[in-house]
Computed example of a mutant assay.
Amino acid sequence: MRIHNRAVAAAATVAIALAFSGVAVGATPGTALASTCSQSYLPLPDPHCTPGSYNPDVTQSTINSTICVSGWTATVRPPTSYTNPLKAQGIIDYGYADTNMSDYEEDHLVPLELGGAPRDPGNLWPEPHYGTQTAYTKDGVETKLKNAVCSGKITLSAARNAIRTNWTTALQATGIG
């Protein structure tokens, strides 16, 4: 339900932004729910709000034509015009006191590098750039896991399960770190 609320609220945010810009919009904006996601899991997202999801086009049998191709993630990465409204709503949903958008990355829990669903709100969350383990730290984990998958050291499934469960221990869980 919370994922649906984020998607509806994000759509409403886009509709409001378009309305203020003078673009005609047919949707009626909804009311965002404040602090519906817990920060207690940080540096991980609240699993009830951000369970993670996969791109069905990326499987073990397609990795050589998808994630293992240099530049492939750029072909599926959603534009900021899509992710910024989700980020704004996520900052509200997570109840972050700091509401500066630039202090967060709208991150894919299951990264695009491992075939995470690009546009599923259940795979996106506002990950802080501050703290001891940040969005920047997670980026390094994602790259190491992708390289291990593409070199055949681990399976796509093992990498996805590890990062979805707990990205801070994913390297150790897969034997990479």
Rank of each mutant, 00 (worst) to 15 (best):
T50E: 08
T50S: 07
S53N: 14
Y54E: 14
D57E: 14
D57G: 14
V58E: 10
V58Q: 10
V58A: 05
Q60W: 13
T62L: 09
I63C: 08
S65D: 12
I67E: 05
C68L: 10
C68F: 10
W72V: 07
W72R: 02
W72K: 01
W72Q: 06
P78Q: 11
P79D: 15
T83C: 09
T83Q: 09
N84I: 12
N84P: 01
K87H: 06
A88G: 04
Q89N: 12
D93F: 02
G95S: 12
Y96V: 00
Y96G: 03
N100A: 15
S102P: 02
E105Y: 06
E105C: 01
E105P: 00
D107E: 15
H108I: 02
V110Y: 04
V110K: 03
P111R: 11
L112C: 10
L112G: 01
E113S: 15
L114S: 09
L114N: 10
G115Y: 07
R119E: 13
P121A: 07
P121Q: 07
P121N: 05
N123T: 09
N123C: 09
L124Y: 04
E127R: 13
E127W: 01
P128G: 07
H129P: 00
Y130P: 00
Y130Q: 11
G131N: 12
G131K: 12
Q133W: 13
Q133I: 11
A135K: 01
Y136R: 14
K138F: 11
G140N: 15
E142L: 04
L145A: 08
N147C: 02
V149R: 06
C150E: 09
C150H: 06
S151F: 06
G152S: 11
I154Y: 14
I154K: 03
L156A: 02
R160I: 03
R160L: 10
I163K: 05
N166A: 13
